[in-house]
């Protein structure tokens, strides 16, 4: 907040001393919206972490006991419970932003954002139910 510098520019007179303000390292604590953004970005650690957990499960697919031990590990369960709210926050923020990336025009009007986000939410519900059903369907029950 206290170092000044002079920057000559191509056009016009060389300006007098300018004051350059440094960005504070904790800028993301200065405004709720920035904090929400930072939490959204940090969800990637839990998303990546769970992907690694899936990789560990994949490595144990042919070893029934190791597979079961990993799933029963209190540490693994605890970490997943920490990751779950972040994963849900990722889903919610991700779907909420879809209308900005996916813009569909119908003549002079944009398809309303809530329809695009809403379609994603509906898909999320269906896919989640499908995944749980799929996971329950296997094994002894057929």
């Amino acid at each position: 907040m206290d170092n000044d510098s002079s920057t000559p520019t191509a056009a016009g007179p060389v300006p007098a001393k300018q004051h350059i303000r440094k960005m504070p390292v904790n800028w993301w604590l200065k405004k709720p919206a920035y904090l929400r953004y930072m939490v959204r970005e940090i969800t990637c650690l839990f998303v990546g972490g769970y992907a690694m957990f899936l990789l560990m499960l994949a490595a144990r697919l042919d070893k029934p006991e190791a597979f079961e031990t990993l799933l029963a590990s209190p540490l693994a369960i605890g970490l997943q419970w920490v990751a779950l709210p972040f994963a849900i926050y990722h889903s919610v923020t991700w779907f909420n932003l879809t209308p900005k990336v996916l813009v569909i025009w119908r003549g002079e009007d944009k398809l309303p954002g809530f329809l695009i986000a809403g379609a994603h939410y509906a898909g999320w519900l269906a896919v989640s139910a499908g995944l749980v059903y799929f996971a329950m369907s296997g094994g002894t029950d057929g």
């Binding site: 597979f67 029963a72 997943q80 990751a83 990722h90 995944l131 749980v132």
Partner: peptide
Amino acid sequence: AAFLFPAAIFITAYMVPAGKIEAD
């Protein structure tokens, strides 16, 4: 991740440990 991970975590962190789904 947005579509699949919450449900997947629900399965591996709750349904299996709670006995709703057999690990095997």
